[in-house]
Structure formats: C-alpha cells, structure tokens
C-alpha cells in the first residue's frame, strides 16, 4: 500500500491555484517530507489555438479580482494583454512535468514560481524561453530543458496527468486530496481555494484522529 500522502491537482495558469500556492507552501513547511505532496497537472485549457479577444481578457482579469480579494496576492495583467496572447496552459504544464522528472519536490516550488511569474509579474509563461529561464533559477539545465519541452514523451506524460485528473472526477482547481488509510480510502481536503488555517485544521484533525486511535 502507498504511504499516506497528499495529491494536489493544479495548473500553472489557474488563478485560484496561484492563490492556493502559499497554502501549499505552508503545508510543506508544517509536514515536510513526512507527508509528501504528489502533483497532478489538471489541464485547465491545454491546446488553445485562438488568441484571446479583448473582451475575454477583460473578463479574465475581472475574475482575478476575486482571487486578489480572497488572498491579497498581487496581480499584473501584462501577460494576457500581450499581442496575440494564447491562453494555452499546456506549455506551462509540460514545463512542470519536466521539472518533476528531476525532483518531485522541486516541481511544487517551480509550479509556485510559474504562477507568481504569470499572475504577479505579468510574464508570459506560454513562451518556452521564459519557462526555461524560470527553471534555470532552480539549477535546471536550460538547454536540456528546452530540448525536452516539445518532446513527444513529455507531452504524453503531461496529457497522462490530464487523464488522471479527469478519471478522478476533478473538475475544478485547486483540489487537494489526502490518503490512503489502511482501507485504501482517499478523502478530499478541499475542492477550490481555502485559507491555510482551515486546510491545516483538516489535516491536523485527520492526523490527530490517527493518534487518538493508538
């Protein structure tokens, strides 16, 4: 049986996941490697081929204000206002999977970095060179990263994540799941953003329930 862990369904270009990234960091600080977090890329809008209209950009930025109000995180719409911007979540997701191959823990950190770059700094993380620059910040070989980014097997692995997410019935991001217990059962911690204190309270209750039974 698998060791107890968390499964985090997320996407680099998911605004509520950006809002949830400090919560993920808080969980990692609290539990460290004692409760590993397995990252599954959800596939929010992969393969988009049409540039966003001005109306769609404004609607998206309007949606971000809700995340900003709930989390206090900064938002910068420079990326989506770029000429011909394609809201294609696939390149960013592939980049995270590429980093995950080297280090699953680092992939979580890199995911948070991509989200901060896109939403907070207005960087276009659909562009391979920006994804590579951000990976290089963590010591990833830039040229090897770029060479892999468009590879067939990396695409297959990433779309495998999307399939896993769909089979699990995950329809909104972020979603955090915990398990398994001895019966192999997993439970949803949260579907959608929730503040860190609430998420940690659920996890604490889960763990303290286990302690109380010993």
């Amino acid at each position: 049986m698998a060791e107890p862990h968390l499964i985090y369904f997320a996407d680099p270009m998911c605004s509520w996941c950006y809002g949830f990234s400090p919560v993920i960091a808080e969980i990692r600080r609290a539990y460290g490697r004692a409760l590993p977090i397995k990252l599954i890329l959800g596939g929010l809008r992969p393969g988009t081929t049409e540039p966003m209209s001005q109306k769609a950009r404004d609607e998206l930025a309007g949606h971000w204000t809700h995340v900003q109000e709930a989390t206090g995180l900064p938002f910068n719409r420079a990326a989506i206002d770029g000429e011909g911007f394609l809201y294609d979540t696939d390149p960013g997701a592939r980049a995270v999977v590429r980093v995950r191959r080297e280090d699953p823990e680092l992939a979580l950190t890199y995911l948070g970095r991509l989200q901060a770059a896109f939403y907070g700094e207005g960087l276009d993380i659909t562009r391979p060179e920006i994804l590579a620059d951000l990976a290089a910040e963590f010591g990833i070989d830039r040229e090897a990263f770029l060479a892999d980014l468009d590879s067939r097997d990396l695409k297959q692995e990433t779309w495998g994540d999307y399939g896993t997410s769909q089979r699990a019935g995950v329809t909104g991001f972020p979603t955090l799941v915990a398990g398994p217990n001895q019966d192999g059962a997993y439970g949803v911690v949260t579907r959608g953003f929730a503040p860190g204190d609430q998420v940690l309270a659920v996890l604490n209750q889960w763990i303290e329930g286990a302690v109380a039974q010993h």
């Binding site: 001895q182 659920v202 209750q205 889960w206």
Partner: peptide
C-alpha cells in the same frame, strides 16, 4: 491505523 477515516472535506 486500520480505521483512520479519510479527512473531512472543507
């Protein structure tokens, strides 16, 4: 823990 339930969702 054989009977540890999964976490209660938020």
């Amino acid at each position: 823990c054989a009977t540890t339930p999964p976490p209660k969702p938020l």
